[in-house]
Nucleic acid binder design. Structure first.
Lengths: 332, 332
DNA sequence: CTGAAAGCGCTAACAC
DNA sequence: GTGTTAGCGCTTTCAG
């Protein structure tokens, strides 16, 4: 079917295209009878404004670029829901791009984003690549970074304080005199792993102890699980802290295979809660972040930047809450 | 920074904009020296073609609309990865839209898609709403439907045969003389629940038995788990089949709370495998579909339709494979 | 081989 | 109030 344009509507309604344009955009100056006439023509013809042409003429597209780490949809699904809900409310379209772990493709993505003339960009800070942001900044495109604290002109960020979260968990143990607290590296999230380590260091510092319980998973290991099975068959620890649900489960599974009971012989804590933590047995104690809100708040921030609304805080830190379950003991 | 346009490049290179356009589009008629001159100007100015203007002029956007059910990112994450990888290869951009369960918002989404002049649309067939497809068809926009067999002009589909998959599972039991096989409804996927039921009916028909083991979860039940805890405290079954990982886990958890052992007292099978099935204990036996391929194949189909390449099969059925694990017994 | 000019669909001054 | 017209940035005939 041939697309019907504003000209067709104008002709049908016997008015000029300017008038039609006014009607579409809800300009109040149009007289009611004319408005109605145009409205009818639009209905009759099934006219739908061409967003491209509008974008070209207006120099804005009501489109927001969204950059997420590939293979991360489980992890960020809830965040996306928040993001998309808010985007829908404000009638923004989302252009989705993924970055692949290891590849330095953020630059390519930004390039594409630039060409599509998105009004703004929301980036999951997989690996923090500040240089790429600068290109966007150069064009005055607002950015919201999710997952790490970044600020600058037209840059806002929404993040969770992993240092504080890990500090809280590690602190429980440090204060209880339990020193043998291990943090398991998340190879896919080096940034976060570092933050976790920092939190633990801080917690143990407070009780006057040095912390060196961070364990790195050798790069030649196929999976966290296979590594742990070997590792736990030799070493014993009181507590292991993992980043994601699957890693926490891997610890539990490996422990079991090594004849260890959770939580009796080893306690396990997950730093990023998901529904699977409470479906697993034993249920895994975890830090929960308000995932949906992370997305919703990020998008809201973006809309504010786009409408030049005042923003009181451009770096928003979202709280967390620790839920003790069955993988920890003594009320922890 | 002011966006540099084709005019700027033309001026810089002392040629007409037509020539610049030819260079960008790799037209072979441009003489090498001119080409080089233009190329340099492009580099120097950092020119990036405006996709909107190109879209307007060409009447195509190299953008594909993607419609997914909200709250489904865990479920479809892997599919998305396949989709996006292929899209990247063919340089298509993705506009992401979600539909909310219950709401009849596919029409709105299609409306938006139409306005953004996407070249094609890929829809996850959450609830099958054929009427919405027709609107797209009217405009000659190719559609790929994921998850159910649909065909028509410019419509292709990629789906998994849930009937056959469930048939295979149910058949194992029917043939072993185990009649007490329950299929648990997935309230979020009525289509799939029906297909599962159909497969079981077929399997039991073959051994001359009627099948009526489909159980519906009352709409007032908060969660599958709470329902099952109550349900299993009264009723006993040999086998329960669930659609997703979380539902299969809910069965296992509820069974345990009712003093039942998996698989000794009750066997559990999941119809849509995920990594969590093998992380749970007991590991849950499951039917695995090639998720990544579903996405990749769908996108590839779309590119073919867009380039008018010949397509030998517009309804692609993807195979599945059953992996017995610890939640079933006797080699099943 | 290159340039001039029309047109893609729409918006926003500026006239009337 | 409504119409006219000049762009927005690019592609693509059509001339030369």
């Amino acid at each position: 079917m041939k697309r019907v344009t504003i000209y067709d509507v104008a002709k049908e309604a016997n008015v000029s295209l300017a008038t039609v344009s006014r009607v579409i955009n809800g300009s109040s100056v149009v007289k009611e009878p004319t408005r109605k006439k145009v409205q009818q023509a639009i209905e009759k013809l099934g006219y739908k404004p061409n967003a491209l042409a509008q974008g070209l003429a207006l120099q804005k597209t009501t489109t927001i670029g969204l950059v997420v780490p590939e293979a991360g949809f489980n992890y960020i699904g809830q965040i996306l829901n928040g993001l998309l809900d808010v985007a829908k409310i404000y009638h923004y379209s989302i252009i989705l791009h993924t970055t692949t772990a290891g590849l330095n493709d953020l630059n390519d993505v930004v390039e594409t984003l630039l060409k599509s003339h998105v009004d703004g960009v929301i980036i999951f800070n997989d690996k923090s690549e500040l240089e790429s942001y600068q290109l966007l900044q150069k064009y005055g495109i607002p950015i919201v970074v999710i997952g790490s604290k970044v600020s600058g002109d037209k840059i806002a960020s929404v993040y969770m304080d992993m240092v504080a979260a890990t500090y809280q968990v590690a602190s429980m143990y440090a204060k209880a005199g339990i020193k043998d607290v291990i943090i398991l590296e998340d190879r896919r999230n080096p940034q976060i792993s570092l933050a976790m380590k920092e939190g633990a260091v801080k917690a143990f510092e407070e009780v006057g102890k040095a912390y060196n319980g961070f364990i790195r998973i050798p790069s030649n290991c196929r999976s966290t699980f296979t590594f742990l099975k070997e590792y736990l068959s030799a070493k014993r620890h009181s507590v292991m802290i993992a980043h994601r649900d699957s890693q926490a489960m891997a610890i539990c599974n490996a422990a079991r295979e090594c004849g260890l009971k959770v939580p009796e012989d080893i306690e396990v804590v997950c730093m990023y809660d998901s529904k699977y933590n409470s479906m697993y047995r034993p249920q895994i104690s975890a830090i929960a972040f308000p995932s949906y809100d992370i997305g919703a708040v990020s998008m809201r921030l973006m809309t504010k930047m786009l409408k030049d609304e005042p923003i009181d805080n451009k770096t928003i830190e979202l709280g967390f809450i620790y839920t003790p379950r069955q993988s920890t003991k003594n009320g922890r």
